[in-house]
Design a protein around this nucleic acid. Sequence first.
DNA 1: TAGTGGTCTAGACCACAAA
DNA 2: TTGTGGTCTAGACCACTAA
Lengths: 253, 253
Amino acid sequence: MTAPDNASLYRSIADELKAAIRAGVYAPGARLPSESELADQYDASRGTIRQAFAALVADGVISSRRGARRTVLGGPRLQSFADLVSFSRWARSVGEEPSGRVARLEHRAATLVEAEQLALAEGANVYHLTRVRMLDGRPVMIERTAYPEPVGELVVGIDPSGSITERLEELGLIFADAEHTIDAVPATAEDARLLAVRSRAPLLRERRRTTDPSGVPLEWSEDRYLGQEVAFTVRNSVNRNALSRWHSGPEVS
Amino acid sequence: MTAPDNASLYRSIADELKAAIRAGVYAPGARLPSESELADQYDASRGTIRQAFAALVADGVISSRRGARRTVLGGPRLQSFADLVSFSRWARSVGEEPSGRVARLEHRAATLVEAEQLALAEGANVYHLTRVRMLDGRPVMIERTAYPEPVGELVVGIDPSGSITERLEELGLIFADAEHTIDAVPATAEDARLLAVRSRAPLLRERRRTTDPSGVPLEWSEDRYLGQEVAFTVRNSVNRNALSRWHSGPEVS
DNA sequence: TAGTGGTCTAGACCACAAA
DNA sequence: TTGTGGTCTAGACCACTAA
């Protein structure tokens, strides 16, 4: 809809196939047309059709095996990268109204973790923003984000009740890669107060580092979701793999 | 090492590049050789080199942008699909000794959820196995897995202290696609007893459905990890995307 | 401006699945 | 056995980055 859609043939073919799957033309389990059929239909080469299919496989929409036609996978629809990095965009994509309330905004020296994640020198300053994020007025998440100074100086000029990520993109920043770590933690006293839950209630914690296309960190965020309200879904297969399990070792007593 | 390694040129090139990155030949942030350089070096066509690079991008190892050379991303090393579906394989890949203890094995009618996830008719039977999984003797996870009858009949003949997934693969089953949903839940009384934690302690819950190449469900599992011991990591980018956020709505009081 | 990656074509041979 | 997807080649043109 609003996406820039850097049009390429294989992208538009992939989008058409995705739309057809979403519309139920190809139900879960159904077999898709062969590469040669689509090549004729779109007057494209086989390589281009394969590129389109590869995008669907990467998105976990279809599965592919040699000798048999590709089949549609079932399950929840996927969201785009932009939906994942921006809470506001995600909320709207699932039909809920996002909002935000600032709990704290600081300009201070980076902690050790922040300096490491943002690749800053020790003692460098960061802007640190704590927000409570809501869906249709109900608080579901606490967002604690550290920005390096050049980014933070832009952030302080942005209305914090809406989407900061979208404003930063309008200002020319490019959010290209993100790395997420997901675990479960008990709510601290502050968490409990901001989310209106019992202290030590289980929260889903997502720590995220987002970088621009050349790998320069743009933000480091620790988000805590109400465990019962939000979950993360991952698809992976023998061919494509973007998830990994992580073990911290027995660090705490 | 032990992988079947269905050799193809682009795979072996990708493996060599991965090994070089792992070994530090290309450090995080470093720029990789150009496509044409590698094409000369490996006496391969540019398309093959691109295919190798695509595999690295999909695994979140490098980033790629038009006009500039590809660069190495930082962060934890990725695990293979097999490592993710099999606890035993994952444990060994991070250098710990896995073990398991059976808490319960039942042959009974499927619950509603199990029937839906395994695509069974209502009233069909499943085999349901509850195991406590340990790393170096410390319990870190409870695994509750339902198998459809044809699979379950194989499972009952397998030594449950080791890897069931690996035995099933030796028997010819192919685990091809998996879908994971991750959230946080409080420990039940049984959870608390099996994991030796306080009741209502935060646990990371992973629900996983694994299918064979044609989409037939092989297992449905609900695993609960100690939140402080295990985390999941996801990489995504504007190009590749396998993670999605999920919102259940206000279903519980 | 020179070099790089992104896209696309038109062929070829092979491994595998399904009928 | 036939058709499918998996791999690979050798070219071409373009958009973009970086010097």
